[in-house]
Nucleic acid binder design. Structure first.
Length: 301
DNA sequence: GAATGAATAT
DNA sequence: AATATTCATT
């Protein structure tokens, strides 16, 4: 019984998305205006240790001046307004961000985060932080978490004994199985019940682990193409913290750190991470002119 | 006041 | 159906 835990624990790393898969996750999905408007950052956090390595810098912004506007990334030298557009300070309030689309990858990230936190600590804010997907809001996570919990609950009720990978294996003749949720395995200990015990795994160690890889992003291109825009995905540079698995078997969790910038608060304007996002315009939504945020193209592992 | 979780709305 | 938003609790 307990072995399952350790078993899973020793294997969980293997389940992690490969570098290539992680790549697209580094996409940001909010416009600078939104970021400013909602003050999406990482204000005060006591629990999670701050990421040591300060991720320096600014993201190389896509030079592409395609459909999406790459707002000023680093410096806004001349304050030349773009005429119609109301520069950066005016009205960013009435804007509504597009609906987030939970792709399998994103969900995977979500599940991993929840798994590592344990049911007990898996609350929206913490999950969001662990996922470290830029642009992801607490509400996004909360909403998804709510549904995920229902999914878990439903699964517990149905499966009873064969917990060890029930849904993942069934899949075919089970239309009731949510496709998204079925796409990533549910960690065993999530199926049980909440832990009343306080200590569990460590709080977690956020660290920057992003990898850069350029590759053809056909999927991306395809998705963009569908949307009507052909966008290129610029190579993203980010700090690559690497954590191998120590022979010791200590707790080393290669996990990704959210864009950190908790500490600096200089008087002048702060650079937010450069929000790059992809808008999927009228594509799947026949409901009207609805904008959908696609973090990355769908794909599975 | 902020965060959470359930209910409710789109 | 999938996400968002509101709301009562904590």
């Amino acid at each position: 019984m307990r072995e399952e835990h350790s078993n899973w624990f020793s294997r969980w790393e293997e389940e992690l998305p490969s570098p290539d898969e992680l790549m697209p996750l580094s996409q940001t999905l909010i416009t600078p205006d939104l970021a400013l408007a909602f003050d999406i950052q990482n204000p005060s956090n006591s629990s999670p240790p701050l990421p040591c390595p300060s991720p320096p810098l600014s993201n190389p912004l896509p030079g592409s001046g395609n459909g999406i506007v790459p707002p000023n990334s680093a410096d806004f030298g001349d304050s030349a307004d773009l005429g119609s557009g109301a520069a950066s300070d005016e009205p960013a309030r009435t804007l509504k961000r597009p609906r987030l689309v939970w792709t399998p990858q994103l969900h995977k990230r979500f599940v991993d985060a929840v798994a590592h936190l344990g049911i007990k600590n898996a609350v929206p804010k913490t999950i969001m932080q662990l996922m470290s997907v830029d642009g992801l809001t607490r509400e996004n996570v909360a909403s998804h978490l709510q549904k995920y919990r229902l999914y878990l609950k439903r699964m517990q009720g149905l499966s009873g004994g064969g917990a060890g990978g029930g849904a993942a294996l069934v899949g075919s003749s089970d239309p009731a199985t949510d496709h998204l949720f079925a796409s990533s395995p549910v960690p065993p200990h999530l199926l049980h019940s909440a832990r009343t015990s306080s200590d569990h795994f460590l709080p977690f160690v956020p660290m920057a682990t992003l990898q850069q890889h350029h590759h053809h992003q056909q999927q991306m291109a395809a998705a963009a193409a569908v949307a009507g825009h052909t966008q290129l995905q610029p190579p993203y540079h980010r700090q690559v913290g690497h954590f191998g698995s120590p022979p010791n078997g200590q707790f080393e969790h290669p996990f990704l750190a959210r864009q950190s910038q908790p500490i600096h608060r200089m008087g002048t304007s702060v650079h937010n991470s450069v929000p790059n996002y992809i808008e999927d315009l009228e594509s799947a939504n026949a409901t009207g002119g609805r904008k959908v945020l696609t973090l990355f193209p769908t794909g599975d592992d």
